[in-house]
Nucleic acid binder design. Structure first.
Lengths: 242, 242
DNA sequence: GCTAAACTATATACAACGTACAACGTATTG
DNA sequence: CAATACGTTGTACGTTGTATATAGTTTAGC
């Protein structure tokens, strides 16, 4: 008990302090707890990850979950790191930095598609985990061969990943059941009455953008648009002779 | 009661259905509820915005809050729209689109600085509110004079705002009490033991970036870096002759 | 003026949550 | 065999959002 989050994150590492052999074996492993929680979150969202639900899915009592994690917040961190660890890292090969950046963005999109709840997790402690560090290390290599300094290399990667994260979660919100489109349908009439002739620009552009949110097409377009801007923006720094 | 969210958002609009004059006057206004909630969120974060806390700050019973809002989720939307309405919109004057984009980003940063909880709110229904629509309309004008089509104009603004949002919330996390730096201090030793000589690139870059998160300087740098990439990325589209 | 309707206010209550605590069972170490 | 370290669990507390029911208050329409 009372293992620190760090030790839990690195529980597979050879240097991890082994649980004393005394006492009964835990009937389930920490991995089982984490993977069960991930399955719940994948299926029904983060709110479905309650201690009680995780316990029930493993046929254990709620309090037994605390044998493996110290708190729900810690569990969420373990989930995120496990997701990062299981993500397939983009293959770089001998491609240009542009291609590599695109692959980084796309693999982050795929990751959030697979685990939408990742977009809602903002606990910084995730960066302490082995899966996250491995991912970070790999993705930093996207900028190999450029003249970026370490600070800029980190900033560039953050820039790409933050874009992917924002854009991916917007894409996911569109086209799902319980969609914003439903809300839009119900509200459109009243909204039209209120807005009237004000904000002509917002109205015209909002319509063109699929009511700004209701259409999945808008999100797809925003992704490709943004990704090209990201790459062009980096190019201005990377490909410009000093 | 049972006013729809739309009607609540537009409660100040002339066309808003006036509450029937029958029955007692509400002792407090919806505005008071919303502003109280915002004050709580500004001071102690979104979690402090409980129905009971809002009620107490206005010396009313918890259930009376429901005279003004239909649910806590709706209250959060009202708060966000009120924050957008009260935000000072960037002045554009006769500046270039680059300057205008920078001002849009900076005013969004200022907004999230003033109301950090905005970064954690992801309810799409906020876009239905008058404050949000006014902000959207104004900010779209940043691209006046460019050849961007409506769809691209929307995507460009989303691109800028999403950057501001991600980057701003990273900046806020750094340098606050209850900082990630504390966690880092406690974990650094164990982490070093686990990571060992693996991931040399991540270690070198992470150190350069202020342990990736612990230093406020890193976030400031990421802001300026990202903003320049955003503008350069848009420039490749806007300033390139077709 | 009176009644019905529309409205506010509040007390009570419920289900769900995270989790502290303590008791108990079990396996290993000396 | 005793001491130790661990796993498991029942119970319980405090907190949350909010449904429901009830009572009070004001005005519209007759």
């Amino acid at each position: 008990m009372a293992k620190s989050l760090i030790d839990l994150l690195w529980r597979d590492h050879p240097a991890a302090s082994v649980r004393g052999a005394r006492g009964p074996q835990a009937r389930r492993s920490t991995d089982e707890v984490v993977y069960s929680a991930i399955a719940l979150a994948d299926a029904e969202g983060l709110d479905a990850v309650t201690i009680r639900a995780v316990a029930e899915s493993l046929s254990m009592s709620p309090m037994s979950v605390y044998t493996h994690v110290n708190s729900r917040d810690d569990l969420l961190v373990l989930m995120a790191d496990a997701a990062h660890a299981s993500a397939s890292l983009p293959r770089f090969g001998k491609t240009s930095w542009r291609t590599r950046v695109r692959r980084v963005a796309e693999s982050n999109l795929a990751l959030i598609r697979a685990h939408p709840w990742l977009a809602h997790l903002t606990d910084d402690r995730v960066v302490l985990g082995p899966g996250t560090i491995a991912k970070y290390d790999h993705e930093l290599h996207a900028f190999d061969g450029t003249a970026l300094g370490d600070l800029d290399r980190d900033a560039a990667l953050t820039f790409v990943i933050d874009f992917a994260r924002s854009s991916a979660s917007a894409m996911l919100r569109a086209g799902q059941p319980g969609d914003f489109a439903e809300v839009w349908q119900e509200s459109a009439d009243s909204l039209g009455r209120y807005v009237g002739d004000s904000y002509p620009l917002a109205q015209r552009v909002g319509r063109a953008a699929g009511e700004h949110m209701a259409a999945a097409y808008s999100a797809e377009h925003a992704w490709e648009f943004g990704l090209q801007r990201v790459i062009a923006g980096l190019s201005a720094l990377i490909d410009t002779p000093a």
